[in-house]
Amino acid sequence: MRPPLEGLFLHLVRSGFPLSVRDYEDALAALRLGHGTLTRERLHRLCETLWAHSDEERIHLARLFRDLPRPTPEAIRAMTHMRQPEESGPPAAAGTERAKPAGETRQEPAPAPVVEFAAAAEAGGIGLPQAAIPPGLLQPHVLTPRPAVGLRQMIVTWRRFRLARRSGPKVQLDIAATIAEKCRCGTLTEPVLVAERSNLARLLVLFDASPSMAPWRGTGAVVADSLGRSQLGHAAIHYFDNDPAEGLFESARLMRPQSLRDVARQHPACALLVIGDAGAARGRSDRERIRSTRTFAELARDAGWWPIAWLNPMPRPRWAGSSAARIAAIPGIAMFEFTEDGLILAVDHLRGKGRH
């Protein structure tokens, strides 16, 4: 006989759930303690608590429990090795009823009240029709805001951006140079030390905080948080309102404005990552915006912000016919969708490894 929950666990692993053997053992231990037993709903709640860590995983698990057929009584008896209860006394003959004890009266079910109306006016109005929706079409909706890319994935992707150089005090032993010095002099007076390697990659992020980016406003906070944990040599984020050429701001509320020259003086020689819809959210093409963005790309290159990658949270098919399609074609700007894969491609472009 297969262990409990083995089939469900293996199916979830094949579906992409990040589960390990320890997660399965935790579920078995909880079952031994009496959690998730007796009812199907309690088992569902236990599996959701231990194995589902995101809204998508909870929806997938709920769909499995909804679509999984309930076991028949025969299957339950076969799995639990329970015998079918034997009936006490001789079976009653067909067409006969069990004898009632003295004094017992049979209670008839009360008839349901029926209310009839001669006309719709007497009913106080016409009732609203109810749509007959199959249970399989009912799915929960995720109403909580979510970033375009999760915090953990964003931190991991930033750490792909590395420019390893030796800098700082000489504290690391250079074995090859020490052996060479020993062979050359015959005696070793002191080991050869070199500076440790550190990540000197520099990144500047410009985030569009205009009203058209309102659905992704929470993503800006996630980006700022992830940059602080990125282990980059230098990382900073500034904000702009639709057009970065018109000026930058220190906060997402577009307060404390700064000129491009001042920001370039604070963050010189950085790779530049711009995050914004580039006009794709409203779906129209603005010639002035395209011209201004082309001017900004030239100013950014003169300021030492190079290369330039652009992350657009709108899907690529929505770029057509808007300013985003023209901005993506500007020489020196590589535009990607703001997804996990798009973020990796953008970072690879900043590393000089992209094929855009």
Rank of each mutant, 00 (worst) to 15 (best):
R152V: 13
P4T: 00
C185T: 13
R146H: 09
E56R: 15
D277V: 08
V222W: 02
A278I: 04
Q107I: 14
C185N: 12
G220Q: 05
R58I: 04
A278W: 04
W319F: 09
E116Y: 05
I175E: 14
I237E: 04
S54M: 04
L28R: 10
I327T: 02
V156W: 03
P71L: 13
P18H: 07
G228M: 07
H44P: 00
I344V: 15
E25Q: 14
G220S: 14
V222I: 15
A75D: 12
S210H: 07
E41H: 10
P140L: 12
I76K: 07
C185H: 12
L200G: 01
A177V: 10
V222F: 01
H234I: 00
W51M: 05
D26P: 01
L31A: 03
F336Y: 15
V142I: 15
H44M: 11
F65E: 02
A329E: 14
F336W: 06
L343M: 15
A224Y: 02
R291Q: 13
A320G: 04
R284G: 04
R165Q: 15
Q231D: 14
R355L: 12
G342M: 11
G127W: 06
I330Y: 05
L193I: 08
R282Y: 09
A309S: 14
V274I: 15
L188I: 10
P331G: 06
P191M: 03
I344A: 15
L12M: 14
R83K: 07
L8P: 01
A309C: 04
H35R: 13
Q139I: 12
L151M: 06
A235V: 07
H238N: 10
N312D: 11
W319Y: 09
S20P: 01
F117G: 11
I126S: 11
D174K: 03
V156T: 12
P147E: 07
R70A: 13
C185M: 09
D241S: 12
L50G: 05
I327F: 03
P169M: 02
R291E: 14
W216G: 02
L38A: 13
A309N: 01
M1A: 14
M82I: 00
R202N: 09
L50Q: 10
L254G: 02
G95D: 09
G168R: 11
V192Q: 12
L188V: 10
